[in-house]
Design a protein around this nucleic acid. Sequence first.
DNA 1: GTGGATACTTACAGAAATGTAGGTACTTCC
DNA 2: GGAAGTACCTACATTTCTGTAAGTATCCAC
Lengths: 136, 136
Amino acid sequence: MTPATTAQSLLEGWQRGNVLAADCPSRPLLAHVTSRWGTLVMIVLLTGTFRFSDLRRRIPGISERMLAQTLQQLEADGFVLRTAFQVVPPHVEYSLTAPGQEAAAHVAALANWIEDNLTRLKPPAARGTDPETAKA
Amino acid sequence: MTPATTAQSLLEGWQRGNVLAADCPSRPLLAHVTSRWGTLVMIVLLTGTFRFSDLRRRIPGISERMLAQTLQQLEADGFVLRTAFQVVPPHVEYSLTAPGQEAAAHVAALANWIEDNLTRLKPPAARGTDPETAKA
DNA sequence: GTGGATACTTACAGAAATGTAGGTACTTCC
DNA sequence: GGAAGTACCTACATTTCTGTAAGTATCCAC
């Protein structure tokens, strides 16, 4: 499937529900998966099942608040499966659902591609000179 | 390549530059491509070359300000090629660079997958009941 | 000469995302 | 008994994102 074909099927099925439409139901799902932390959570969960604090440790910089919120969104969307054991130091496990794994694979593929192609993109001189970052 | 393999190569090459690291240079690139408007711009550009106001019309809801900003980021990142003709009503064309097409293909694949799998994800009852949206 | 089109930019304001700090209830370890 | 670990939630503050409205310079059609 060429890039053009992919775009074609995306744009031709206009009535099916299109990302380009502002009120398309796929928008929030896409937003959650591509959000700052959503992406990283999906990528980590692709490698296995983890407890809350495991995830926190594996994703440097994430706060508990954001991790909890992100997991809840992804769970509500059907990407993530939350399994709580009724024991008393709480024990909860997070993993990907079947569709979650497929979605995460796409996310990881994109992230992977960017890492592998960093040098083809922003020339070395420009890298690290992010105007947004520079202002701050 | 299985999902696990993808994640593996992502997590094993820790030193190469990893998305999980907060200061990884790939982070801003990923952020631009997965941003609210970045995603849509990439998807539309996958279908051809367009002028500024063409893009504006094809992406419902985007403001001129956001389109300009998004295009500038994607251009600086090396995803988008901007061609300005020195004529006077200004004429500028936007298209994807070679790497931009590859990246856009990944983005479109993800968006496509979500649209195709909407029913497998959020159950119909839950769809349209986005807690975030509901509050507003 | 008035209105519309082109491709933007800038200032300002409001909305949304994110971080910080604290609290909960219970357990095990020293 | 005090500290640490588990999996969170809540209020508040800050940062970042996004939208609105206006302005720029030039051209063409009416």
